[in-house]
Computed example of a mutant assay.
Amino acid sequence: MQLKVAIIVTGGAAAAQAARGATSAVPIVMVDPGDPVRTKLIASLGQPGGNMTGLSSATPDLAAKHLQLLKEAVPGLTRVGFLSNPNAPAGALALEETEKAAVMLGVKVQPIEMRKAEELDDAFAALARAQARGLIVFADPLTFTLRQRIVQAAAHRGLPTVSGSREFVDAGGMMSYGPSFPEMFRQAAMYVDKLLHGAKAAELPVEQPTRFELVIDMKAAKSLGVTFPQSILMRADAVIE
């Protein structure tokens, strides 16, 4: 590393992997790195070891919950696309959990890969060929950056969507379920403070979110012909009219 920094803060799995590859000495506070244990960024959540700590959004059933919510909102759903960047390590893990849930729900999951913005049209063409009737968007830096285009393309093709980031609903998507990412970055500041006051990254447990937000957009749902059941409306933390 050329810059002399005291602490590195990363967002997303790819950035965490890159920072880990760049230094083993500078403390790294990671935010939303996927499952940092399964991707071998840390030894364990309780005792990270090495120079990394922070906040992980990965929980055992989060990916499965997205499919469950989509199926609950669209009961006749039998085929759904899973859009992700294959270069994002956490995406493969989320797809694996989604496919496990799909077996129980009687849904066929079609993985759709998009490595760069120029592949967006091809991704939606693949969704059409797969005859997907719903779309799960895995939130990574690429899909997050393209969220406006993704939700517009999905709406144009009549695809109900769900993602793990509220910002997708703010962009016009139908539904999201996941932790608050702005809140996670605020919590990351507490890690930075502890590290600056002498704490060791190896000894600071990696925290997982304890509260998740269910956000729904009634206007987007109506345009897609989706009527949210009371079971979803009653659990929603925010309803956009």
Rank of each mutant, 00 (worst) to 15 (best):
N87G: 15
A88C: 04
A88I: 00
P89T: 05
L93A: 08
A94C: 01
L95Q: 08
L95S: 04
E96G: 11
K100W: 02
K100P: 02
A102N: 08
A102D: 11
A102P: 07
V103K: 15
L105A: 12
L105D: 09
G106Q: 10
V107N: 05
P111F: 11
P111M: 13
E113P: 01
E113W: 07
M114V: 12
M114R: 02
M114I: 13
D121S: 11
D121L: 12
D121Y: 12
D121A: 15
D122R: 15
A123Q: 05
A123I: 09
A123P: 02
F124M: 02
F124W: 08
F124R: 01
F124D: 01
A125P: 00
A125S: 08
A126G: 01
A126C: 06
A126F: 01
A128R: 15
A128G: 07
R129Q: 10
R129Y: 02
A130H: 00
A130Y: 00
Q131G: 02
A132Q: 02
R133M: 04
R133G: 14
G134Y: 01
L135Q: 04
I136F: 07
V137C: 03
V137Q: 10
F138M: 04
A139S: 15
A139Q: 13
D140S: 07
T143Y: 12
F144S: 01
F144I: 09
T145N: 13
T145S: 14
Q152T: 15
Q152P: 07
A154V: 05
A154T: 06
A155H: 14
A155L: 10
H156W: 09
R157H: 07
R157W: 03
L159N: 09
T161A: 01
T161R: 05
S163F: 07
G164E: 04
S165L: 15
E167G: 03
E167S: 09
F168G: 00
V169G: 00
D170V: 13
D170L: 13
A171L: 08
A171C: 04
G173Q: 07
G173R: 04
M174Q: 07
M175E: 03
S176Q: 02
S176C: 04
Y177K: 00
P179Q: 09
P179C: 07
S180L: 13
F181G: 00
F181I: 00
F181W: 11
F181E: 00
R186G: 13
R186D: 12
R186V: 09
Q187D: 10
A189R: 15
M190A: 14
Y191G: 03
Y191R: 04
Y191E: 06
Y191L: 05
V192R: 10
K194L: 14
K194E: 15
L195N: 00
L196S: 03
H197R: 12
A199F: 01
K200R: 13
A201C: 01
A202K: 12
E203A: 13
L204P: 09
P205N: 03
P205F: 03
V206P: 11
E207S: 14
Q208L: 05
R211E: 15
R211Q: 14
F212L: 13
V215K: 00
V215D: 00
I216P: 08
I216M: 12
